[in-house]
């Protein structure tokens, strides 16, 4: 199978899945552009892992269309999986096989793999020393690394990762982020990863899909999503003028929200309203000592878009 130029790497339309009475996916739709590093976000139980299982043919969908690398799934499952590396939930290799043997045997089922390539991916995921240790003796973080090593073994064109840094220490998370950036840059792979770590997604991904209750609530490029709707600024005023500023700010044009913080106020503004707010304060005799833009975070957007803010339902 060859990938058609211009096709999205992933396209999901009206995807539905029900487990008994529970509706896991209720008409999910999204598109991941070819070559993107896309984050897949949603509260617990939003349907992220179910979506990944459906995409990879592990669970049949009730209805809906799925396309991966330009062809439909699960009709072209084998040809798609040849070019896809995946890690879904916790990686569960054979406990009594070593990390090396697991990669070699499972990897051989896609296409022949050399021992050098297996050692190379083990080295890239920091598992060289544990290569010949039984998988059952690996720590959670090491198991996760091996899962990622397996996913990248055949230099996939599409990498689907479910919580890839789950159980890793901070250093491991940074290494994994660097590895994914490197793979994306060097091999041009499209990466689609689900994660609860919003700052991680914001640092790594250029595209994001947010789901809740089995539906897509927002998708698009991260930069576009963050700039949409509001800006956050910190306003600092001269000593003794805090009360006056606090009384003025909520009523000024373009101010959406205002709250006191230790050295001033944090205000949510309509895009482009900061200059006007500054002028209005100065005009009212308030000395503005600093007007500091606060970087918009994906977390705020996520919390605003989802019902329970990521807490288990």
């Amino acid at each position: 199978m060859t990938r058609s130029e211009g096709n999205p790497a992933l396209a999901v339309r009206d995807l539905r899945k029900r487990f008994g009475r529970k509706e896991a996916l209720a008409g999910l739709h999204f598109t991941v552009p070819d070559g993107a590093v896309a984050g897949f976000l949603g509260p617990n139980g939003a349907g992220k892992t179910t979506t990944l299982r459906l995409l990879l043919g592990l669970v049949p969908a009730d209805s809906g269309d799925m396309e991966m690398l330009g062809v439909s799934m699960p009709a072209h499952r084998a040809s798609v999986l040849e070019q896809t590396g995946a890690l879904v939930e916790k990686p569960s290799f054979l406990d009594h096989f070593s990390g090396f043997d697991n990669l070699w045997w499972f990897g051989s089922l896609n296409r022949p793999v050399t021992r050098e390539r297996v050692m190379e991916v083990l080295a890239r995921t920091g598992l060289t020393d544990a290569a010949h240790q039984a998988f059952g003796h690996y720590s959670t973080g090491m198991k996760q690394r091996l899962g990622v090593a397996y996913a990248i073994l055949h230099r996939p064109r599409l990498l689907i990762l479910d919580e890839p840094t789950n159980g890793m220490d901070p250093q491991g998370r940074v290494q994994m982020r660097d590895l994914l950036r490197e793979i994306h840059a060097a091999e041009g792979a499209t990466i689609f990863l689900s994660s609860h770590l919003l700052d991680e997604v914001q640092r790594l991904c250029d595209y994001v899909v947010i789901v809740d209750h089995g539906r897509t609530v927002r998708e698009g490029y991260v930069a576009d999503i963050l700039q949409r709707g509001r800006e956050t600024w910190e306003v600092r005023v001269a000593e003794g003028q805090a009360d006056r500023a606090g009384a003025l700010l909520p009523g000024l044009p373009g101010v959406l929200a205002c709250r006191a913080v230790p050295r001033g106020f944090e205000v949510a503004l309509e895009p482009g309203a900061s200059g006007g707010v500054n002028q209005a304060l100065v005009g009212a005799g308030v000395t503005v000592t600093a007007l500091i833009p606060k970087e918009a975070s994906l977390e705020e957007t996520f919390l605003a878009l989802t019902d329970n803010g990521g807490d288990p339902a």
Partner: peptide
């Protein structure tokens, strides 16, 4: 139950 069947079925094997 252990999950290794999932790894097997993530390969292009029918």
């Amino acid at each position: 139950g252990r999950g290794s069947l999932k790894i097997l079925l993530l390969t292009p094997i029918e």
